[in-house]
Write a protein that binds this DNA or RNA. Sequence first.
DNA 1: CGGGCGGTTGAGGTCAATCAATCAGAGTGG
DNA 2: CCACTCTGATTGATTGACCTCAACCGCCCG
Lengths: 217, 217
Amino acid sequence: MQAQSAAALRLPSQPAPLPPQRERVNVIGVAKRFDRDQEVYGEGDSADYVYKVVSGAVRQVRVLADGRRQISEFYLPGDVFGVEAGLERRSSAEALAETVVVVARRSSLTADPEAAQALWGLAMSDLERSRDHVLTLGRRAAAERVASFLLELANRVDGGDIVELPMSRQDMADYLGLTIETVSRTLTQLQGQGLIEIRCCRQIRLARRAALAELCE
Amino acid sequence: MQAQSAAALRLPSQPAPLPPQRERVNVIGVAKRFDRDQEVYGEGDSADYVYKVVSGAVRQVRVLADGRRQISEFYLPGDVFGVEAGLERRSSAEALAETVVVVARRSSLTADPEAAQALWGLAMSDLERSRDHVLTLGRRAAAERVASFLLELANRVDGGDIVELPMSRQDMADYLGLTIETVSRTLTQLQGQGLIEIRCCRQIRLARRAALAELCE
DNA sequence: CGGGCGGTTGAGGTCAATCAATCAGAGTGG
DNA sequence: CCACTCTGATTGATTGACCTCAACCGCCCG
């Protein structure tokens, strides 16, 4: 599956206020649009391009031979993704919903020293987040995983107490190393404890943020 | 706890043949010796220095408020560690056994463009390993975790079919998101299936490497 | 000999997975 | 408008993998 042409591209009407540090890396390139569940790139593809999310969201996925899925990262508007250590993709990237990204040759970034500098900070913060993720998956119980996920998301999009989830329960489960049923149960349990309010599936209000944070220690 | 002086430093008598790519980053600095379980740096310390393992081994640890531990990475001879996104350590580093490292100012590496380049590759491969780790913790069962751990270790030290474990069962458990008992049981179970041979606690022969790899899919 | 430490083994409990049913909302077509 | 389906989410009952608690072993060292 390859990217659709983006001749007539309307920029997103809701540019969404971003935390400032998100805009550091300037990616100059062609805009491309992807439909929901469409692959941006797949495992084994050559890693020539890097991407920046303009609108929508992207998941980075690895799949085991028997179909078990693990999402290693979600990318939100402003995030850069697709930088790889080697020449080949070790995971695939898929759009969560209709998504617009800007595409640039990888070489165009590593050439420019300023961009390379920004890219460095980016890789390091990705590494930091990945290690947080390791801690969560290795040592936290289901409720703690969900709580930390909601808080992380809230911090990244910074939309006050209301978190708009761009992903399905299945995606949350695949990110948190749980099943869809456990995610669902845990959310209703957290609501029962008054920590969150599920306004509708994709919209959650963090009623007692401090208590959620305490869950994650 | 701070590093001991290393005035009279004997270089390790067994320089251990390393995979070539391990030697990429040239860290020029002062050698320091650490005893078993001694802290190289702790959470919250300032992140001014980077380290390269000469002999011994180091674990990178994060601890939750109630004492649950997660090891995010082991560093073996030739590995560089201690590069951080921010100015503060977000995890601590401890010697697994008597360990010698070379210490350099972080700025001395980022200044030199060649070192910076090498450092970049290093960060990216750390990121890649961290994402493998996420997959393992999120989606693999105990036997698969142990098998992938043994294979990863074997690949890194490249000592044929015999893997010398530099860490205790507790450290393995904290890396794999399991308990010490489960690690022990799983090892004996793998031995029962003829996949490995436990020669003594810290020395394991990978009897059927292909079968182990198949476990990890 | 006693005690501590790291590792192994056993018995029982628990949390999340599995299997299954139900529900709500969005299309779709008569 | 009302069935009907389809998809995503929720809820319930049961199972099972791993954790917890505890005993035990081998080894080293005082």
